[in-house]
Each structure stands twice: as structure tokens, then as C-alpha cells.
């Protein structure tokens, strides 16, 4: 396991694209959440204290975790694209072949990538802890309630695993960088929303929440301010247990589908 990760590390440690995209994730997470905590991200804004905020700007603990986690769930796109690029690179450079020729095998190659995905999930979760912790402290100057909402952090880890697992599977399936990134964005940003709307409309229940990426998105819902929650316009949802189990199930599906795909085809 350590050997496989060491090999992956050699591949990325001097890969500029990798570090730039990771940097985007961290920078956006920090800047966006900071502005949100300052109440500067508003609808109809443009000047200080102008417009209506539908984003929770209360970053005291434990709200800091849910808010940072929610915005992290959008910026995780960058890390997903990183996963797609480093995986399709192997096909583009035909280094997937060379790695096997030199002594790995298909499954080791696959597990190296799966391990890298897990490490990236841990790293992005740490980013969320860092940013959420920093802003929570800045907002309230106290660490009271630091651990009370900490399960949101575990949710973020699962969400990252769901996104990156999906990205890895798509990259292995399509093998071409541009097409895989295009399809990933198309699905994550539009297609799933369309499917979600269709399913919800036809079943009259929020079953659309069970779709691959939506399942984990539902673990970290939009950080509505308390006032909007009281107005009872927050959409209906299923239980957290359902979302948790569905997310884990999708992760397992990506893993086994990727494995079956690689075992079946030529390299």
C-alpha cells in the first residue's frame, strides 16, 4: 500500500497542473467562506450591507462546519478534475501499460489510483477543517461547540469520496481527458439536476436525492440562514441515514464497476 502510494507520489510531486488545481480548491474555499462569513455574498448585493442574504453568515461553531462543508462540496469539482486528469494522463502517455510492463499489474495500478483518491479525500477534508476552524474562530473568538457539529466533517469526507470515486470511474471508462472532464461537468452541473427534477416530479417524493452525486450533496444541505428555515420554504428531504447509506453504496458501485471494467478489457 505504502509502495503504491510512493509511486503515485513520484508521479504528482512535480506536476504543476496538480498543485495549481489543489491550490484553487484551497484558495476558493478560504476566500469564498471568508466573504460569506462577512455577509458579503448576497443576492442583489454589490455594496456593503446591501441586498438580501440567503446564505448563512453565522460562522460560529457548529454552523461553520456545515457552511464550509457545503461550499467545499462545490469546489471539490477542482479535485475531481485533478483525479480525471491524472488518470487519463496515464492512458494518454500510455504509462498505464508501461507501469504494468515494469512490474505492477492492472489491479495494483487501479488500487494505486483508489488509494490516491482516498488520500485526496483526506487532504480536502483537512482543508475544510482548517478553513472552517479558522473562520469559526475568527467569527466567535471561541472554540465553544468546536466538536458539536463535527460529524459534518465526516459527511464531507464521504462527499469527497463520492465525487472523486465517480470521477475516477468516469476517467477509467472514457480514458480521454477532455471528454471525461466535459462529461463530468455536464453530469454534475446539469444532467443530474434534470434527472433529479424528473424523478421528484414523477414520484412526488424527494427520491431524486438518491442519484449518485446528489446523495452526498444531500448530506451537506445549502446553509440557509435561520430566518429562511423558519419560513418553511426549505425543500423536503429523506433521512440522513438514507443519504449516508446511499452515498456509501454509490462509492462501492464505482469501486466494483471500475474493477470489473479493468479486468475485462485489454490494457
Amino acid at each position: 500500500m505504502i509502495e503504491l502510494l510512493a509511486i503515485e507520489w513520484l508521479k504528482i510531486k512535480r506536476y504543476r497542473t496538480f498543485w495549481i488545481l489543489i491550490g484553487f480548491f484551497l484558495a476558493l474555499l478560504l476566500l469564498w467562506n471568508y466573504e460569506a462569513s462577512q455577509g458579503n455574498i448576497n443576492i442583489g448585493g454589490g455594496r456593503k450591507n446591501h441586498g438580501m442574504s440567503i446564505v448563512n453568515s453565522d460562522y460560529s461553531f457548529p454552523q461553520a462546519w456545515g457552511s464550509t462543508g457545503y461550499w467545499g462540496s462545490i469546489f471539490i469539482m477542482f479535485i475531481s478534475i485533478v483525479v480525471i486528469i491524472i488518470t487519463t494522463n496515464e492512458y494518454g502517455y500510455r504509462t498505464n501499460r508501461q507501469n504494468v510492463i515494469d512490474g505492477l499489474n492492472k489491479m495494483k495500478f487501479y488500487h494505486a489510483k483508489v488509494l490516491l483518491v482516498v488520500v485526496l479525500c483526506i487532504a480536502s477534508t483537512l482543508c475544510v477543517v482548517l478553513v472552517g476552524g479558522l473562520l469559526g474562530w475568527l467569527h466567535s473568538h471561541s472554540f465553544a461547540g468546536f466538536f458539536s457539529g463535527f460529524r459534518q466533517i465526516a459527511y464531507f469526507f464521504l462527499l469527497a469520496l463520492d465525487y472523486l470515486g465517480f470521477a475516477l470511474f468516469l476517467a477509467l471508462l472514457i480514458r480521454r481527458s477532455g471528454l471525461a472532464i466535459g462529461l463530468f461537468l455536464l453530469y454534475a452541473m446539469f444532467l443530474e439536476t434534470i434527472l433529479w427534477a424528473i424523478i421528484n416530479a414523477h414520484t412526488n417524493k424527494p427520491y431524486g436525492d438518491l442519484l449518485p452525486l446528489q446523495a452526498s450533496d444531500s448530506l451537506l444541505p445549502f446553509p440557509y440562514p435561520a430566518m429562511i428555515k423558519m419560513m418553511n420554504v426549505v425543500p423536503p428531504s429523506l433521512s440522513m441515514t438514507t443519504y449516508l447509506m446511499t452515498t456509501c453504496a454509490w462509492c462501492a458501485v464505482y469501486y466494483f464497476a471500475g474493477r470489473a471494467l479493468l479486468l475485462r478489457r485489454d490494457w
Binding site: L10, R14, R16, T95, D102
Partner: peptide, 15 residues
């Protein structure tokens, strides 16, 4: 078959 963005030296380290 090598990583295009790496030097000859770094590529051989992977091998």
C-alpha cells in the same frame, strides 16, 4: 511511454 511533464531523471525514478 513516459510522463511528459517529468524530466528523464524523474521518469527513471518511477521506473
Amino acid at each position: 511511454n513516459f510522463y511528459h511533464y517529468l524530466s528523464a531523471y524523474d521518469n527513471l525514478e518511477i521506473t
